[in-house]
Design a protein around this nucleic acid. Structure first.
Lengths: 155, 155
DNA sequence: ATAATATTGTTGTAAATGCAACAAATTAAT
DNA sequence: ATTAATTTGTTGCATTTACAACAATATTAT
């Protein structure tokens, strides 16, 4: 890469990652709308993450779903209001924390949404080969770990 | 990758790209604050993009800086108020469009900001090898092109 | 010729995000 | 023992973002 190109933001890897992430986010939201999903993408990924990790505190969940603590609390409020999760107080390292777990309705809607989504994804035209995806995952993992040393995530 | 892992959002490549992009964005803003930059990251990348592409219309600029048209217009308003750009009406495909160009002050602040930033980047500890970066760029390029076929960017 | 469609930019508004401040409780420091 | 610092979650607010609607103009369709 020539120096003259290198020095412009638009040619940096930072720009390319952010651009690709925007595509991911827009595509995800568009698909959720097109499929008339009963959940938003954020709600889906939150339920899905709770499903994997079981009972974790809100802050740990926030780190996983890539939101800050206020946003996470608000998402959980709406999921709780709609009866998809229940919240309760527990302790972690001798500290009071709020944890949550999926209700039967939460499990049900998550399963339903997952099925609809899977059907859509399976019918997409050829996307990338498994090798290409693996390669991208390795590269981006390395990059992310480099960033982690420098960035302060205040969550 | 096992099917049981594959089906959770947090294990998808979409999640990993979005996570890495957040790191990029936070790190960028943190560095700009730490260095007491005279511009925000958004303002810098806007000026930098105008510098490369010269006189382009707002919509084309919007696509480049990854903002929608209203956001782009507002960023340009503040840059114009501060005297870093001038705006004028021109035509593109027989249509009236607003284009912009850097003023002397705009050139100056961009050069100054670029220098400060370059000095910081050059003094960072070893980040990734050029080969690793090249590999990541290739992988993410392929991924982005796949997404482009599916996503509708309403800019 | 008239109507429908498309492009560009602006305005307005609802939603999401970022962030500082706070409360409550625990741990560490002096 | 008292103070200081830390962790977790909430509240409030300013900023940013997303998106629909509009105005102005040009192109296309009928």
């Amino acid at each position: 890469m020539k120096l003259s190109e290198e020095k412009h933001y638009i040619n940096t890897i930072f720009y390319k990652v952010e651009q690709t992430a925007k595509y991911c986010k827009y595509l995800g939201n568009q698909v959720f709308q097109k499929l008339n999903m009963p959940l938003t993408l954020d709600e889906f990924s939150t339920l899905d993450t709770i499903k994997i990790y079981g009972e974790i505190c809100q802050r740990d969940l926030a780190k996983l779903i890539l939101k800050d603590r206020p946003s996470t609390g608000r998402i959980l409020n709406t999921l709780e209001e709609r009866g998809y999760i229940t919240r309760f107080v527990d302790t972690k390292n001798n500290r009071l924390v709020r944890k949550m777990s999926l209700t039967a309705e939460g499990e049900e809607i998550l399963t339903k949404a997952t099925k609809v989504l899977r059907k859509y994804v399976d019918n997409l035209p050829e996307f990338m080969t498994q090798d290409d995806i693996k390669q991208l995952e390795n590269s981006i993992q390395k990059f992310k770990q480099s960033l982690e040393k420098e960035v302060e995530m205040n969550i």
